[in-house]
Design a protein around this nucleic acid. Structure first.
Lengths: 252, 252
DNA sequence: TGACGTTGTCCATTATAACAGACATTATGT
DNA sequence: ACATAATGTCTGTTATAATGGACAACGTCA
């Protein structure tokens, strides 16, 4: 009587895309199924469907990867996802003004993903690109991005390893929640040396008219700058966020 | 006894994404279902699944559009879709050398879509961006992109209206096929004044080691240039395609 | 006010798709 | 060569998902 449970086809399809996106390389279908822990026959079948629709593309050696159609979809998103378009000039401006890297982040799949980034003057510093993502517990932005979710939801969805850096626990859910409340009270969030040693960030949320956190803007800089620059950064960040928010609400 | 036929969930999902991509704006779910000619209950259910997974995003007024996750996927494609990455410098170089617009095109969904484009010196001229697509029968590149498909398949899949420009038939399948054979024999394809008056293009295919046409590189220019520049364009295009092909096979 | 179109939810039905598992074929290693 | 793993295809079974259709809540236009 073991109640056998079946995954939904659409979920399998998205899981396939997630898996490929995670591995960031073409994979053999068999390997893909193994990596997902999914039935081989299902993945072979689903893969064929997605290949037919150019959602996946074939590569040599029977490998598959995210397809041309996803490229086209991806190109169309920012046109309408106006937050990216609207924020861009302000983020560029802020990065230019401060000489530090500035990012637009949002919550995707229980990770913090980079929607847009402008590099600062420290060219040797911090090279992640749009599309990459951070573990939530280790960033200042996620203090705001998890707003509205209860503890149980967060426990279920944030992978345990996201609290670790190089095998060492650097954060707990409890602490994360406390930080989050504190950040909300202050209106900004500061995190140092979590994601990496000597790396700090300051973030503020972009909140829509119904109070939902849409995304965050964050500044990343060496922790050594903190004492000298924190006040200046917070002030400049606040101005930028206000400008973005105003522009966004105007655009409706 | 009417054999009722059901669409597959995955296909419905992709249809939704296609429809949104096609309309290029957020749509109300109901409107979406109508535009697709699909059952409302199905589309309501499927959009919810896709929203939960950030494949779609919500907009004000119950509207939905291509979501953040698609943006992330789209950003990851070119990293591995090495043809785009590899071609880019060569296409830039060619556009610079000739002063004309050069595109990397491929077949997606029975349209010719732009994977990458470098603008020429005619800044007033021809402003389509990557992600956009052309009707197959009206371009020089598609003479190569349809290689390997039989007449019946093409008849079924290429929409009738793609043979028309502003209500006037400017191409037939029969002519299209003849052009295609001829192009294959010559190794390049020239089309004038089909997509638009006074607009011409010359294309050559990028063919992998098994003889499959992966994509094409095309030059777009005013028809008036044809007489003076055709030979030069063909020669330069040939060199570029050879370089891309060689680089691509090396990367294999 | 009433008639009508639009938008969204919910349920029962049944065609079908996800799955398990057998089989075939091709690497890989010893 | 032999054993073993990796890869791909096929089929039957049954849980379930796509669908039709009823219902409700709006808005709007006359």
């Amino acid at each position: 009587m073991a109640k056998v449970t079946r995954e939904r086809g659409i979920d399998r399809a998205i899981d396939i895309l997630d898996c490929l996106h995670h591995h960031r390389r073409p994979m053999v279908v068999n390997e893909l199924a193994a990596a997902m822990g999914a039935p081989r026959s299902t993945i072979y079948q689903t893969t064929k469907l997605l290949l037919n629709r150019s959602v996946l593309d074939s590569y040599s050696g029977g490998r598959v990867f995210l397809g041309r159609k996803l490229f086209l979809y991806g190109s169309a998103v920012p046109e309408q996802y106006s937050l990216i378009e609207l924020s861009r000039p302000f983020i560029d401006e802020l990065a230019e003004e401060l000489g530090e890297r500035v990012e637009l982040n949002s919550l995707v799949d229980w990770k913090q993903s980079i929607l847009y980034a402008a590099d600062g003057k420290r060219s040797y510093f911090f090279p992640l690109n749009p599309g990459a993502s951070y573990p939530l517990p280790l960033t200042s932005s996620s203090r705001f991005l998890i707003d509205g979710f209860d503890e149980e939801t967060l426990r279920r969805n944030i992978p345990e390893e996201d609290y670790f850096r190089q095998g060492e626990r650097v954060m707990t859910l409890d602490r994360f929640l406390k930080d989050s409340q504190e950040a909300k009270a202050h209106g900004y969030s500061v995190v140092s040396d979590l994601l990496d040693n000597h790396l700090s960030s300051i973030s503020m949320p972009i909140i829509d008219k119904s109070g939902v956190v849409l995304s965050t803007i964050g500044i990343a800089f060496p922790t050594g700058e903190m004492e000298a620059s924190k006040d200046r950064f917070v002030e400049a960040l606040k101005e930028t966020v206000d400008k973005v928010r105003e522009t966004f609400l105007m655009a409706g």
